[in-house]
């Protein structure tokens, strides 16, 4: 309860702020659509022939949206010193980290859920499958964990918008690789064995690892 209550309070506060302002949701949705449209034209392929590159396109779009969301999650705390408000409260840094990560996770999943059917139509994919949903959930947990950690570091610098992707993408690469491979298998509709035996366990391990390491280091980063 000592960890859960402030974690949920911080996450709910972030979700509520986003519901009120809607600035990040709208910009993330538009940005996601632009990414897919640009790649669509850039690859210059006939409609229906994008299947081989569709998993990559999907995760490129989701990755960029993730960075957009992460930048916002801590930038909002800077507006009137909200970050100081979190740090002077008698809550553990773990709760601050987990609350921010949970808020980002919810936000990213909502955006992804809205964009997925659109992508399915544009890329000609059978995208509405439970396995794909699980892959997206697990990969997004990793995105939210790593992204929240680096957003917390980047927000303390002047060049935070640039610094976050520079820090985020190299570390999140293993998750992107696992997500793309698993998504490709899920979309091909072939044998699901490797998804369950290799990629989903790998995503679970990455999520657990990053969750523990990031929340541990976060406490040191935000020590007064």
């Amino acid at each position: 309860m000592k960890l859960l209550r402030p974690t949920l309070a911080i996450a709910w506060k972030d979700v509520r702020l986003e519901l009120r302002s809607r600035d990040t949701v709208i910009s993330a949705l538009v940005f996601g659509l632009i990414v897919v449209v640009v790649f669509n034209f850039g690859l210059n392929r006939a409609p229906g022939s994008l299947a081989p590159v569709a998993p990559g396109l999907l995760w490129v779009a989701y990755s960029f949206i993730g960075v957009l969301a992460m930048n916002r999650t801590f930038a909002r705390e800077l507006e009137h010193g909200g970050l100081d408000g979190l740090l002077i409260a008698p809550v553990s840094r773990d709760a601050v980290f987990l609350g921010k990560a949970l808020g980002s996770l919810v936000f990213m999943l909502v955006i992804q859920a809205i964009l997925l059917p659109v992508f399915a139509v544009m890329l000609g994919l059978p995208a509405l499958s439970p396995v794909l949903g699980l892959i997206i959930l697990l990969a997004t947990v990793g995105f939210a964990t790593i992204g929240t950690f680096f957003a917390g570091i980047a927000v303390q610098t002047r060049s935070r918008e640039i610094l976050l992707p520079v820090l985020f993408f190299p570390v999140v690469v293993p998750i992107i690789i696992a997500a793309v491979e698993a998504t490709a298998l899920a979309l091909q509709g072939g044998p699901a064995g490797p998804i369950w035996s290799r990629w989903i366990p790998l995503l679970v391990v990455f999520d657990a690892l990053f969750l523990v390491v990031c929340s541990w280091i976060f406490a040191f980063v935000f020590e007064g």
């Binding site: 507006e79 009137h80 010193g81 909200g82």
Partner: peptide, 13 residues
């Protein structure tokens, strides 16, 4: 209890 230069409040709440 601390009240500094920043209000530590969220504008949209």
């Amino acid at each position: 209890g601390f009240a500094g230069h920043d209000t530590l409040l969220y504008n949209d709440l």
